[in-house]
Nucleic acid binder design. Structure first.
Length: 889
RNA sequence: GGGCGCGUAGCUCAGUGGGAGAGCGCUCGCUUCACACGCGAGAGGUCGCAGGUUCGAAACCCGCCGCGCCCACCA
C-alpha cells in the first residue's frame, strides 16, 4: 500500500507489526514516487545542496562508508522535512590508479597512448598476464568504464538498502564526459590566467607506478634502515692542507649524487672547513662545504651530505644554495648510467669513478645501497659498523616502495602564493565540529610547494593541450596549443588540434598531445561543479573568478553548496583542493559548511582496513540487523569523532524500531476517538515536554549535530513509553460513564496521536523505513516529505491549552511515584499489576498540590487503591510508603 | 619536535559551574489487556593524576601521565 493512498480517517494498523520486508517495500515506493527527486523549480533560497563524497569504486564499500553516509543522509532528511529542496546527488570516483590496476589484470591489457583508437576493439578472450595486449588510451578507458559499471551498480544497491535519500537521477562519475569537460575547462582557465604552469623540476615520484605524486598523497611508514658514518676527504687547496670530514647518512647509495656538505653557520667545529672542497669517497667528486641554518648541529656528525635528491630537505638546500643537479636515479627506481668525466660529473680520478659506479648502475636503490657499503668498506671510508635504526619514510599512499625525487616536467597549480587567502577561506567556512579547522590551517601552513597535478598515467582526465614539434621533431613545451572550449572533452592522444592533420602527429613541424592525465584530486576537487552541471547553460561558465554563477540553470541553483560532508583524513586533499579550485575559479567558497565525520574503529580502537582483515561487510550487517538499526548505530557517532564498531548498538537500534511500531499501534488503537481538546493536565504537560525536545532536536540539527538530536529524542521517547503511556492507559481504557471520563479518554487519544506524530517525524531522519511504515498507517503521503515538527505546530496541538508549571510538575511527580510503587512491587517479587492498598507520598506542600492533578491517572497506573500524602519541609525528603494489598492468589 | 582530540560504571558513550547518567552486559523479579524483538527493579564509578580559580569543579585554568590522529627540515 502506498503512503499516499491512506488517510487519517482509515488508519489501518497491522495485527502484529514487524520490521521484516519494510526496506524493500519502502525503497520501491520512494523510487516509484520520486520521493527524493530534486525540485529544480525551487527558488535558490529554498535549495539545500550537498556535495556528496564520491566513493572510490575500485574497492568495496565498508562499514566506515555506511557510518558517514548515514550522517549525511540524516542531515538531508532533516532539511527536506524543513521544506528544503534537497540537492543530494551520488558520485562514483572511478578515475585513477586502482581501477587501472584492476583492468590490466582482469582483461590482460596495457595502455599504450601511442596506439590508435580501435572502435571495434574487443578484449582478449583469454587474458594473458605475461603478454598483455597494448591498446589505446580511449580503448583502455572504455574497459575501465565497463568494469567500474558493475561496481557502481552494487554500490547503488547497498545505498538504497541503507535508505540513503539520494536523487539517483543526478548521479555522476569522475571519469565521465561531464567531469572531463569541467576539469579540462577549469584547467584551461587556470592556464590562461597563469595559475597553472608547467615546469621541469624535482618532483615526488613513485617508482612502481612511474608517476609524479603530490605532497598530499604521501604518508609516513616506519621502515628499518641503518645509519652509515662515511669519510669524505678534504682536498688540499693550499689554504689548510688535506684532511677529512665525516658525515652520517641512511642513503649511502646517493654519494655519487652528492653536491655539497653542509654545516650550521654557527657551528665552530666546522669553521675551518667551510668554503673548502670535500671529495666524495669512491668517486672523487669535489663538493663544496657550505652552511645553512636548517642544519641540525645535534644530528649525526653535525655535517650533512646534500644529494640530488634524497629527500625534500635536499630540494630546499639545492634550491636555496643554487647547487647543481647530479642525478643518479631513474624513473624506474634504478641507478642510471652517468657520464663520469663529462660536465657536472668531474672527478679527481675519472677511471676509478667509472669503475666504482659500474658496480651500482642498473641496480635498484636497495641493491645499490648494499653494494656501495661493500665498496666503502673495501676502500676504508666507512667508519665503524652501520647502526641499525627505524625511521619514517615517505611513501605514496597507494605505493609499495618509498617515493623518490626525480626531475621531470610536470603541471602545477599555484598554491604557495595563495596560502593566506586559503586560510582566510577556511575561516569563512563553518566547520562541524569547529576544531577541525585547525587541521586545514596546519596543512596550508605546512605546504612546501605548488600542487603538482600531472600524473604519468592513463585512466584519468587528459590535459587538453598539444605541443608543436620543431624541424627536428623536438617538443616545444613552452608553446602549448590549448583546446577550444567547444571541443571539450578532448583526448589529445587521439584528437587533433586545430590547424593540423592527423598524419602530422609525431612528425617534424607537426604536433604531439600532452601525454599525462590529471591527479585524481584535480578532478574530484570540482565535485560541486560536476554534480551541479556547471558545464550546462547560462550561469555556469565560471572559471574567470567572476563570483557565483547567476541565472536559472541548475548550477546557479546549487552553487555555492550548503555542505560538504566528508571524513577528517581527507581535509588535506579533497577539502583543501576543492576550496582552492573554487577560490581560483569563482573567488568564493564552494560551500558554507563542512560536516566532518570520524572513522569507524574496530573494537581494539584500530582503524579498520582491508589489510588488517578486520573489515565488516555492510550488506551482512544490513541483513542481520536491518537498515534502521545500522543507521541508528551510525547516527550515534558524534560529528568528527571516531567510533568503535559495535553490533550491540545495532541491536539497540532494532529494539527502538520495534518499540516505535508497537507504541504507534497503541496510540492509534481504534478506541476512543480523538477529542477536540486536551482536558487533562498530564496530557498538556507531556505535549509541552515533547515540544521542548523537538526544539532541542531542531537546534541540534541546525548545528549539524545529528547525534545529539537522536539522543535527545530517543531519551524522551523511552520516558514517554515507560511513564506517560502507562499513566494514561487507565483513563483511556476505563473512561467510565461520566462526561468527564469520556472527555479524559478523548483527551488521551488526542495527546497520544499528536505526540506520536511528532515522535515519528523526529525519528524519520534516522529510521526512515520504520517511520515511513508507521506513518503510512494513518497519514497521507510520505513522512519524508512531511513537515518537521516546529514550535508553531506544537503550540497549535495544544490548542491554546498551555501546560502550566504546576501541571508539568504533576507529570514529573506522577512518574516518580510510579517508580517507587514499581520498586516496592519488584522488591516484594509481585507482579506490576499487584494491587496497592495505600500509597503515602511524602513531599512538600507545593509539590503535593501539583500531584493532585495526577492522582486520577496515577491510581490505575499503579493499581493503587488510596493515595495519601504527608507534607514534609524539603523535597529531599520525598518518599513513598507503599502498602501492598494482601496476596490473594 | 609542533598541532588537534580523547581519558566518566565491565563494554560503548552522553553529560561544559550546583542532584554522577544512558544503553548493553550482569543479578533478581514479572505471561502487565502496544510491545517477551517485552516490562520492572538492583548491584556497579577516588569522573586519568596533581595543583589552582570558585561558596561550589567531571566540567574552567596550569602542569603531568596515557591513548589516538594530523603535521614536521625524521642527515
Amino acid at each position: 500500500m502506498a503512503a499516499n493512498e491512506t488517510t487519517e480517517a482509515d488508519a489501518t494498523v497491522p495485527e502484529r507489526p514487524a520490521l521484516d520486508g519494510l526496506e524493500r517495500k519502502w525503497s520501491e515506493a520512494w523510487e516509484r514516487d520520486g520521493c527524493y527527486r530534486f525540485d529544480r523549480s525551487a527558488p535558490r533560497e529554498r535549495v539545500f545542496a550537498i556535495d556528496t563524497p564520491p566513493p572510490t569504486v575500485s574497492g568495496s564499500l565498508h562499514v566506515g562508508h555506511v557510518f558517514s553516509y548515514t550522517h549525511t543522509d540524516a542531515l538531508a532528511r532533516y532539511q527536506r522535512m524543513r521544506g528544503k529542496a534537497v540537492f543530494y546527488p551520488m558520485g562514483w570516483d572511478d578515475n585513477g590508479l586502482p581501477t587501472e590496476r584492476r583492468v590490466q589484470n582482469h582483461f590482460g591489457v596495457r595502455c599504450d597512448p601511442s596506439v590508435a583508437y580501435d572502435p571495434d576493439f574487443a578484449p582478449p578472450a583469454e587474458p594473458s598476464e605475461k603478454e598483455p595486449l597494448s591498446i589505446s588510451r580511449p580503448n583502455f578507458v572504455e574497459l575501465c568504464l565497463r568494469l567500474t559499471e558493475t561496481d557502481e551498480r552494487a554500490f547503488e544497491e547497498l545505498w538504497r538498502r541503507l535508505g540513503l535519500s539520494v536523487d539517483w537521477s543526478m548521479t555522476y562519475t569522475t571519469i565521465g564526459a561531464r567531469a572531463q569537460r569541467i576539469s579540462q575547462r577549469s584547467f584551461l582557465g587556470l592556464l590562461a590566467r597563469g595559475e597553472a604552469y608547467q615546469l621541469e623540476a624535482p618532483t615526488l615520484w613513485d617508482v612502481d607506478f612511474q608517476t609524479a605524486v603530490a605532497q598530499a598523497e604521501l604518508e609516513d611508514r616506519e621502515r628499518p634502515g641503518a645509519m652509515h658514518r662515511v669519510r669524505f676527504s678534504i682536498a688540499d687547496d693550499g689554504s689548510g692542507g688535506a684532511g677529512e670530514a665525516l658525515i652520517e647518512t641512511t642513503r649511502p647509495e646517493l654519494i655519487p649524487a652528492c653536491v655539497a656538505l653542509l654545516a650550521h653557520p654557527d657551528d665552530e667545529r666546522f669553521r675551518a672547513l667551510v668554503g673548502r672542497d670535500a671529495r666524495t669517497p669512491l668517486f672523487g667528486t669535489r663538493v663544496p662545504v657550505l652552511t645553512h641554518s636548517l642544519v641540525d648541529r645535534e644530528k649525526g656528525t653535525g655535517l650533512v651530505m646534500v644529494c640530488t635528491f634524497g629527500d625534500l630537505t635536499d630540494v630546499v638546500w639545492w634550491r636555496e644554495l643554487g647547487l647543481p643537479v647530479r642525478s643518479v636515479l631513474g624513473p624506474d627506481g634504478r641507478l642510471t648510467d652517468v657520464p663520469w668525466g663529462a660536465a657536472g660529473w668531474e672527478s679527481d680520478d675519472v677511471e676509478r669513478a667509472r669503475r666504482e659506479y659500474e658496480q651500482l648502475a642498473g641496480r635498484t636503490v636497495n641493491q645499490a645501497r648494499k653494494r656501495i657499503v661493500e665498496l666503502l668498506v673495501e676502500d676504508g671510508d666507512l667508519v665503524g659498523e652501520p647502526q641499525p635504526l627505524t625511521r619514517a619514510v615517505k611513501f605514496f599512499e597507494k605505493g609499495e616502495r618509498p617515493v623518490e625525487i626525480v626531475t621531470s616536467r610536470q603541471w602545477f597549480i599555484r598554491t604557495m602564493s595563495r596560502r593566506e587567502e586559503l586560510i582566510e577561506r577556511g575561516r569563512e567556512l563553518s566547520w562541524h565540529p569547529p576544531y577541525m579547522r585547525a587541521r586545514f590551517e596546519d596543512w596550508v601552513n605546512g605546504l612546501t610547494g605548488d600542487w603538482c597535478i600531472s600524473r604519468q598515467r592513463f585512466f584519468g582526465v587528459p590535459f587538453p593541450v598539444w605541443y608543436p614539434l620543431d624541424d627536428s621533431g623536438a617538443i616545444r613545451h613552452d608553446e602549448p596549443i590549448a583546446a577550444r572550449a567547444e571541443q571539450l572533452p578532448v583526448d589529445p592522444s587521439t584528437d587533433v588540434p586545430d590547424g593540423y592533420a592527423p598524419e602530422q602527429r609525431g612528425q617534424p613541424n607537426g604536433f604531439v598531445g600532452d601525454p599525462d592525465v590529471m591527479d585524481t584530486w584535480a578532478t574530484s576537487s570540482l565535485t560541486p561543479q560536476i554534480a551541479g552541471h556547471a558545464d550546462e547553460g547560462a550561469g555556469g561558465a565560471g572559471g574567470d573568478r567572476a563570483g557565483a554563477p547567476a541565472g536559472e540553470g541548475l548550477f546557479a541553483k546549487v552553487f555555492p553548496m550548503d555542505v560538504r560532508p566528508q571524513a577528517h583524513d581527507i581535509i588535506r586533499t579533497w577539502l583543501f583542493s576543492t576550496i582552492l579550485r573554487s577560490h581560483l575559479d569563482y573567488d568564493e567558497l564552494p560551500w558554507a559548511n563542512a560536516a566532518i565525520s570520524g572513522w569507524v574503529l574496530d573494537p581494539d580502537r584500530k582503524k579498520m582496513s582491508k589489510s588488517k582483515g578486520n573489515v565488516v561487510t555492510p550488506m551482512h550487517l544490513l541483513e542481520q540487523f536491518g537498515a534502521d538499526a545500522v543507521r541508528y548505530w551510525a547516527a550515534s557517532g558524534r560529528p568528527g569523532t571516531d567510533t568503535a564498531f559495535d553490533p550491540k548498538q545495532m541491536k539497540d537500534g532494532r529494539r527502538l524500531a520495534v518499540k516505535l511500531l508497537n507504541a504507534s499501534k497503541f496510540a492509534l488503537a481504534d478506541l476512543p476517538a480523538e477529542g477536540q481538546s486536551l482536558t487533562s493536565a498530564l496530557d498538556r504537560a507531556m505535549i509541552a515536554r515533547v515540544a521542548r525536545v523537538a526544539a532541542d532536536a531542531t537546534a541540534s540539527f541546525d548545528e549539524y549535530d545529528y547525534a545529539r538530536a537522536l539522543e535527545r529524542v530517543e531519551r524522551c521517547f523511552w520516558w514517554y513509553c515507560d511513564y506517560y503511556v502507562e499513566l494514561v492507559k487507565g483513563r483511556r481504557y476505563d473512561p467510565g460513564e461520566t462526561d468527564r471520563g469520556r472527555a479524559g479518554a478523548a483527551s488521551a487519544s488526542r495527546a497520544l496521536r499528536r505526540s506520536l506524530s511528532v515522535f515519528q517525524r523526529l525519528f524519520a531522519p534516522f529510521l526512515p523505513f520504520v517511520c515511513e511504515e508507521v506513518w503510512s498507517w494513518w497519514q497521507p503521503g510520505s513522512i519524508h516529505q512531511a513537515g518537521w515538527p516546529d514550535a508553531r505546530e506544537l503550540a497549535d496541538a495544544l490548542a491554546g491549552e498551555q501546560a502550566n508549571e504546576r501541571e508539568e510538575r504533576a507529570l514529573e511527580l506522577a512518574a516518580d511515584v510510579l517508580r517507587e510503587v514499581r520498586k516496592a512491587k519488584s522488591q516484594a517479587r509481585r507482579p506490576m499489576r499487584a494491587p496497592v492498598a495505600r500509597a503515602v507520598v511524602h513531599d512538600t506542600a507545593e509539590r503535593l498540590a501539583a500531584l493532585e492533578l495526577a492522582i486520577e491517572d496515577l491510581r490505575p497506573a499503579g493499581s493503587i487503591d488510596v493515595v495519601a500524602t504527608v507534607e514534609v519541609d524539603d523535597a529531599e525528603q520525598f518518599a513513598v510508603d507503599v502498602e501492598l494489598a494482601d496476596d490473594d492468589s
